[in-house]
């Protein structure tokens, strides 16, 4: 069976640098599982995240989605349709409302949902954002609320792969538990591939497989 996402001897070196950040990494990520990637700051977690989210390409090796290299794929389409990315710093359009952010994301991914606004409200409600908050500008939301909006946006176009960078970093314990529950359900009940980059032990606790990144090498714990 073809894996949802695979790293095939992936290396990455920043432009102008002689030292590779990632060295010959190979791994597979299957649907129906939660993966966590742990590692110290500067270990290459964010670089790996940018490669699997299609924002960048490896200098060597391949990132494969459904057996197809991202180099041969329309990466805009990959980002808008195949993966949902939850950024550590949310990366929301700050002067737009939460709803506008999510509807725009659905429009970009050409979502077939007929009533996008209603769908967005429902999605945000699942993330603990009420209608009033949903209609406020992102700039006026708290860090936790922005994080939830980021998660809702990543889920809005119903992606097969969900990638998150410190997804619960700004959430209270209760919401963190709720969100982790959502991730677990998305993987186990909806057969999605969930990849979480984290420092949190609690997040690691829901993982089906844990990878550690150290000195540019990925190893399974």
């Amino acid at each position: 069976m073809t894996s949802a996402l695979a790293l095939d001897h992936v290396s990455y070196r920043y432009e102008g640098s002689t030292k590779p950040v990632l060295k010959d990494i190979s791994a597979t990520f299957e649907r129906g599982s939660v993966y966590t990637i742990v590692g110290k700051s500067g270990a290459g977690k964010s670089t790996l995240l940018s490669l699997i989210s299609g924002l960048d390409l490896p200098t060597k090796g391949e990132v494969l989605c459904g057996g197809m290299s991202l180099k041969e794929m329309d990466r805009d389409w990959y980002r808008s349709w195949k993966v949902g990315v939850i950024f550590q710093s949310f990366n929301l359009i700050t002067n737009a409302t939460a709803v506008q952010n999510i509807v725009l994301s659905m429009n970009i991914s050409k979502s077939k949902v007929k009533d996008k606004k209603t769908h967005t409200y429902e999605l945000l409600e699942r993330m603990g954002i009420d209608r009033e908050t949903a209609d406020r500008k992102v700039l006026k939301l708290s860090g936790g609320e922005q994080q939830r909006v980021g998660i809702a946006r990543a889920l809005a176009h119903d992606p097969a792969i969900l990638i998150a960078d410190e997804p619960t970093g700004n959430l209270d314990r209760e919401t963190e538990a709720e969100i982790l529950d959502i991730f677990t359900r998305l993987a186990h009940e909806e057969n999605r591939c969930v990849i979480l980059v984290t420092h949190s032990r609690k997040v690691t606790s829901i993982a089906d497989k844990i990878y550690s990144i150290q000195h540019g090498q990925l190893s399974e714990l």
């Binding site: 805009d76 990959y78 980002r79 950024f87 970009i108 991914s109």
Partner: peptide
């Protein structure tokens, strides 16, 4: 930044 977010969400340059 806004352009970066749109591009990260998969919006094509031309759009």
């Amino acid at each position: 930044y806004e352009i970066g977010v749109l591009r990260a969400m998969g919006m094509k340059r031309l759009k």
